[in-house]
Amino acid sequence: MPTELSDRLQATDAALAARVACGDVAALTPLYQRHRAQVYRFALMWSGSASVAADVTQDVFVHLLTRAGDYAPECGALQPWLLGITRNFVHRRTGADARYVANDDDGEPPGPALDLPAPEAALDAQRDLARLRAAIAALPPHYRDVLVLVELAERSYAEAAAICGCELNTVRSRLSRARGLLARWLDAAPSRANAAKG
């Protein structure tokens, strides 16, 4: 392996980001290799759409290419910073910014349409996953942020708070509400589906 390439692969995220900020654009490649999966999966779980996730991933790394100087290593690791950017782009791509204003005192949002009849051949597990995805997609964005970050992307509460730009207690309360809504909707879905069949 050429020495220069080996150096790049072993360099820290902060060093690589600094190189990108100084115009060494080739340093973006190892950063992309390291973080593309987490960025893509977060966008995929948030939006439920592979095409949106692919577009958002591209947006995030092109943003990093031109704005790497905005990253401050003393404020934390690169990956949470990237997930924060991912969150902004996925909101923008899905129109979540325009539709919602985060308000934790809102009443219960309208539930998802979970009683669509699944194809008979579909496996139960696949149907359950599809229902869960639909339920997550129906969550208000500020609830969905913390649910996807903490429960699916397995980030800590502190990281989720930093990414979402809110207090730790806000993350806890939003996560609790998000879980409560999901549990209620998923519990109610079979009866609604049965009612629809009946």
Partner: peptide, 21 residues
């Protein structure tokens, strides 16, 4: 949630995204 997490555990961006970057 664990099942959903596992379903995307190996997901990667498509080749087109790699090429675009």
């Amino acid at each position: 949630l664990a099942a959903l997490r596992a379903s995307v555990a190996d997901a990667l961006p498509p080749t087109a995204t790699d090429q675009a970057i």
